[in-house]
Simulated scan of single mutants.
Amino acid sequence: MTATALAHDVGLTLAPCHRRLREMESNGVIRGYRVEVDPAKVGLGFEALVFVTLKDRSNLKGFEQEVAGIGQVIDAQRLFGEPDFLLRVMAEDLPAYQRFYDDVLVGLPGVEKLTSTIVMKHVKTGGRLPL
């Protein structure tokens, strides 16, 4: 949405709207802006959710640091209980994912168990905070 449209929607003129946006950006309320890319149109039409269980907590930081640097892992959440992590992984296709699984995922620090499930369809994406 443009700043002009936002100003209209919230009942402000453009200048105060810009000022409030800059204030929210500097305070960290607005963390950034992004572009949504269609994964299939850039050759990444395969998506898997990977549940990761670690052997123990001694490799926790090493695992997190290594995962943070892997481009094909587009989301990573640490979970309470088991499994320990949920990774969202993008690949070209199933054979490319299998290579990534064999060459990268199984070698991550402390991995005891990996369970993958393939994303069939996105029902809802880009959810926003209920504000």
Results as ranks from 00 to 15, higher is better:
residue 4 T to M: 13
residue 4 T to A: 14
residue 8 H to E: 15
residue 9 D to C: 09
residue 10 V to K: 10
residue 11 G to F: 14
residue 14 L to S: 09
residue 18 H to W: 07
residue 19 R to I: 06
residue 23 E to Y: 13
residue 25 E to S: 01
residue 27 N to V: 09
residue 33 Y to S: 14
residue 33 Y to C: 12
residue 34 R to Q: 13
residue 35 V to T: 14
residue 36 E to M: 15
residue 37 V to E: 05
residue 39 P to H: 06
residue 40 A to S: 13
residue 42 V to W: 08
residue 43 G to P: 03
residue 45 G to D: 07
residue 45 G to K: 02
residue 49 L to H: 13
residue 50 V to M: 06
residue 52 V to R: 00
residue 55 K to F: 11
residue 57 R to D: 15
residue 58 S to D: 12
residue 60 L to C: 09
residue 61 K to I: 08
residue 61 K to C: 05
residue 62 G to W: 04
residue 63 F to S: 01
residue 66 E to N: 06
residue 66 E to T: 07
residue 68 A to V: 10
residue 68 A to N: 14
residue 71 G to L: 12
residue 71 G to E: 14
residue 75 D to P: 04
residue 76 A to R: 01
residue 77 Q to G: 08
residue 79 L to P: 10
residue 80 F to Y: 14
residue 84 D to G: 01
residue 84 D to S: 03
residue 86 L to Y: 03
residue 86 L to C: 07
residue 88 R to P: 02
residue 94 L to D: 06
residue 94 L to M: 08
residue 96 A to H: 07
residue 100 F to A: 00
residue 101 Y to H: 12
residue 101 Y to F: 13
residue 102 D to V: 06
residue 102 D to S: 11
residue 103 D to W: 07
residue 104 V to E: 04
residue 106 V to F: 13
residue 106 V to P: 06
residue 110 G to H: 04
residue 111 V to L: 04
residue 112 E to N: 09
residue 113 K to N: 06
residue 114 L to P: 00
residue 120 M to I: 15
residue 121 K to E: 15
residue 121 K to Q: 13
residue 121 K to A: 11
residue 123 V to N: 09
residue 124 K to Q: 11
residue 126 G to N: 07
residue 126 G to H: 03
residue 128 R to N: 08
residue 129 L to F: 05
